[in-house]
């Protein structure tokens, strides 16, 4: 119950803040570190809007307490941008394919897609579905998201992986 100091690496930077144990990583990122790109959708692990990378793997940030992230490495949607803040390759692909509408599920989609392409640079459609199956989107019906991931895969390969 007493707040604890939590130090972790977020998007390549060491960040530190205090949180009581019951604060989720999601709330910690949003409200302690002001990284508001990660979104709250259900807080019970179904929708995937809060997906981040935790030690390189896509996870639900609503299902991890911030205290559990102490000493770990987290990547959020902000971390997919280039160093100068411009959109990174997967973010460009989502724009080119209009793989989004309201943008609310998008950060989670981008993280799941990025995680997929890091391990599987040339994914099949089934692999894309498997990777995105835990991210609900209510706007798009998924087709343009699949297009975006296919497009990103091409650009990842073009860039040498």
């Amino acid at each position: 119950m007493k707040p604890r100091k939590i130090t972790l690496e977020v998007n390549g930077r060491v960040r530190s803040a205090t949180a009581e144990p019951r604060l989720t990583l999601l709330d910690f990122l949003r409200y302690a570190l002001n990284l508001t790109g990660t979104h709250m959708g259900c807080e019970h692990g179904v929708c995937g809007a809060c997906t981040v990378m935790f030690d390189g793997l896509a996870v639900r940030s609503c299902l991890i307490y911030a205290v559990q992230a102490d000493g770990h490495d987290v990547t959020t949607v902000e971390g997919l941008c280039n160093g100068d803040g411009t959109p990174g390759p997967i973010q460009e692909a989502f724009q080119d394919a209009h793989g989004l509408q309201c943008g609310y599920c998008t950060p989670g989609m981008l993280i799941s897609a990025q995680a997929l392409l890091q391990s599987t640079p040339d994914p099949s459609d089934d692999e894309i579905r498997e990777a995105l199956g835990g991210n609900l989107c209510r706007c798009t019906g998924y087709a343009q998201i699949i297009d975006a991931v296919r497009l990103a895969a091409v650009s990842f390969q073009g860039a040498g992986g």
Binding site: T36, G37, L80, Q91, L110
Partner: peptide, 21 residues
Amino acid sequence: RRVKEDKRFVSGTGCYVQDVV
């Protein structure tokens, strides 16, 4: 053509009500 709104959404810089505190 690209959708103007998309850039802020893909970069995590949209401003939703939960971001206004």
